[in-house]
């Protein structure tokens, strides 16, 4: 009896910890290889196993962070860490627009601080892209007739809605992730590893104008419009930028 009573308590404990985990459900992304979009040599790279949030961080989740860390309130935030549009769609410091909608109008610094507060980190560009591969496996070429790409393009080309839809309303991908496409753009840790030129660089080692003036020469796959749009979007950012359609999710595990 004693033992059974004890195990019941342990079970209860387990259950409650499951519930708290449930608030921030993560998916395990298995180790594997893929060919990064714009690497000149187009060789597969290895991605180690890691965990990734199933959904983008919601406004109510972010609210918890702001409550515990007042320096990240919209009224307190320092300009170094976010531009003046930070949390623009929130009515007040602790008043969200829509609880289950993804938090957007957050800077890279804010996204990073949030993930670290939760004992996590932002995914790298490679991790994110690897986890987002859909209907197209490593090494396959992008194809205009690919249904999935058509769906992605369709989202990318439609004006955003206000307020944003809630997370986890669409289909999951093969890893159980929601909303990798079709809800918001997402910050990644090394967003600034995308080649960029301001057109004046005299001797930059970055390929000139890869994403700005439209050169497709260095990309592996000129048919992969969806990737072009993601990489172009990332390369237009600075760490302090906050944008309506830009949110994030956190990762865990070795990077």
């Amino acid at each position: 009896m004693m033992i059974r009573g004890f195990s019941a308590a342990a079970l209860l404990l387990l259950l409650s910890s499951c519930q708290s985990l449930d608030e921030v459900r993560t998916a395990r992304i298995p180790q594997g290889e893929y060919v990064p979009f714009f690497d000149a040599d187009q060789k597969p790279v290895e991605v180690r196993s890691f965990h990734l949030d199933m959904t983008p961080v919601t406004q109510s989740q972010y609210l918890e962070f702001v409550k515990k860390n007042p320096s990240w309130r919209k009224s307190k935030i320092k300009r170094l860490f976010a531009d003046p549009d930070y949390l623009k769609n929130w009515k007040a410091d602790e008043q969200v627009q829509s609880e289950q909608a993804p938090v957007t109008y957050v800077s890279w610094f804010a996204a990073k601080a949030y993930c670290e507060w939760r004992g996590q980190r932002l995914p790298s560009i490679r991790e994110w892209e690897y986890a987002a591969l859909e209907g197209k496996r490593s090494g396959e070429r992008g194809d205009a007739s690919n249904d999935n790409q058509a769906g992605i393009l369709n989202w990318y080309s439609r004006p955003g809605k206000e307020p944003l839809p809630e997370v986890a309303k669409g289909a999951r991908n093969q890893y159980g992730l929601f909303d990798m496409h079709g809800l918001v753009w997402e910050w990644v840790f090394d967003f600034n590893s995308v080649p960029k030129s301001d057109g004046r660089s005299s001797s930059s080692e970055f390929p000139e104008d890869l994403f700005c003036a439209g050169g497709t020469g260095s990309s592996g796959d000129p048919g992969d419009y969806a990737s072009f749009m993601r990489f172009a979007f990332r390369s237009s950012l600075k760490g302090s930028y906050t944008i309506r359609d830009l949110g994030f999710r956190c990762a865990k595990g070795e990077s």
Partner: peptide, 24 residues
């Protein structure tokens, strides 16, 4: 490094062989 470069909008990337591609 990542924080500093994010703040000054400096883009760089480590290529596979330990050589960095970066802005000047």
């Amino acid at each position: 490094v990542q924080e500093l470069t994010a703040a000054i909008a400096f883009n760089f990337k480590e290529a596979a062989d330990g050589v960095f591609i970066h802005q000047n």
